Simulated assay, not measured.
Amino acid sequence: MERKELLKDLDQQVKNDLENYFKDRDYGVIAVTKEDALRAFVVRTTNLCEVARLKHKLSPIAAAVLGRALAGALLLTSLLKHGTNQRLLLRIEGDGPIGLVVAEANAKGEVRGFVENPNVETFVKEADGKKKFDIARAVGKGTLTVIKDFGFGKPYESSVPLVSGEIAEDIAYYLLKSEQIPSAVSLGVLVNEDGKVEVAGGFLAQPLPGATDKAIEKLEENVRKIPPITTLLKECKRPEDIVELIFDGFSPQLLALKELSFRCRCSKEIAKNSILMLPEEEIKELIKEGGVSIKCNFCGTEYFFSAKELEEILQEKKQGDN
């Protein structure tokens, strides 16, 4: 569903309509408050995280890390013009065993990503008497970089140190330091014992210019009281239900909807272009070997080029160099 200017009160009829339309699909809800200048963006990303897990054959903690990054990138598309081809890339470079983590999302709700080490072993920690994934240990210390491509000129790039490695806190720190937007960010991925993603999602809540101190204090109080996002999703809470919790004491209005999906823009033509960039001698070696497979980092799809296809690419390269 393309973004629609809604500004509808989030009443029971609207909630019923959302449930009937989206059912179990992934989607996001952007809402504001009628009384003050507050905004929230809540996403359910269970299906797309499971698609990513299967495509990359992720270990449980790798699925949790990438799932958080994918949801985080989608939340950051609030910095883009909705419904356009504008996109941003979230890159987490830590010294932990999972290595590089990359997630790219566009303003239409399409996201893709990967981790450097998809088979990283699972680290757990005790929190509130429960065992949880130790995401910070898997990610480590390093930097978070956001690259925004508005479709014109040079992409805008900004980096901040990782303050926790938990990803949500790191994105909140980025928004404060690089965008000067104080924000509350929550991300979560719950993985079953069989490795399947059970629920995943996140939310972003922030004051807009003109928000009163009283409204900001109430928003902060609400966010502190909200259970973990995975707990809410497991209880079958939908994005619009979570909006109501974030805006408890206010009158939430629906501003926009966005259907979300894991989608990669790779193709055999793009893979072919990467071969064209190789020196002629390397292409000749690949021909001798009988062909080559080019794998997309973002989705794991492999494109095979036979010796005959490589010979055609080599001829195309020679003609282009003349």
Rank of each mutant, 00 (worst) to 15 (best):
I226K: 05
K318L: 10
I275L: 15
C264P: 00
R25C: 06
S164N: 11
T145D: 07
L48Y: 14
G210N: 13
I270M: 10
L190C: 06
N117E: 07
T143N: 14
K318V: 10
L204A: 05
C299D: 02
L245S: 03
V101R: 11
L18V: 10
I287V: 09
D213W: 10
L144H: 03
P118N: 04
I229M: 05
E312I: 09
P207F: 02
S293C: 08
K284N: 07
L58N: 02
N85H: 15
T77K: 08
E280T: 11
L38S: 01
P227N: 03
L276T: 01
D95N: 15
D36G: 08
E179W: 12
P207G: 07
S306L: 04
E220I: 08
D213N: 12
I226D: 02
D9V: 13
I275M: 11
L70E: 00
V243I: 15
G202Y: 01
C49R: 05
L10V: 04
K4T: 11
R3A: 13
D149N: 14
T301C: 04
K81L: 13
A107C: 03
D24V: 07
E2S: 12
K81I: 14
Q253Y: 15
L58C: 07
Q315H: 04
G83R: 01
E5N: 10
L89K: 15
P97A: 11
P207D: 01
G165K: 02
S306G: 06
D134N: 12
P252T: 14
F203K: 03
Y173E: 06
K272T: 07
K288A: 05
F123M: 14
L254H: 04
I313R: 07
G320V: 06
G83V: 00
L89C: 09
K234F: 07
R238G: 10
G28T: 03
I147D: 04
N117L: 03
G153Y: 00
L208F: 11
S306P: 13
G83W: 00
Y174F: 14
Q86I: 04
V43W: 01
P207I: 01
K284E: 12
Q86S: 04
K295R: 15
E169C: 05
S178I: 08
F247K: 10
K218R: 13
C299S: 04
A62R: 08
V42M: 02
F262I: 01
L74P: 00
Y303A: 02
K148V: 14
I92K: 08
G96K: 05
T143C: 07
G28D: 00
Q180F: 08
L255A: 13
T212H: 08
E240T: 08
V199K: 14
L232Y: 00
C264S: 11
E220L: 10
C49M: 08
V191A: 03
K214T: 12
G153M: 06
I147L: 12
D213Y: 09
L90W: 00
K288D: 07
S59M: 05
G195P: 06
E235K: 15
V14G: 02
G96W: 01
R25W: 05
T84Q: 03
E104I: 04
N273G: 09
E282G: 11
C296T: 00
V32N: 13
E198G: 10
S274A: 13
K218F: 02
E259G: 09
G210E: 09
G67D: 01
N117H: 13
K4V: 10
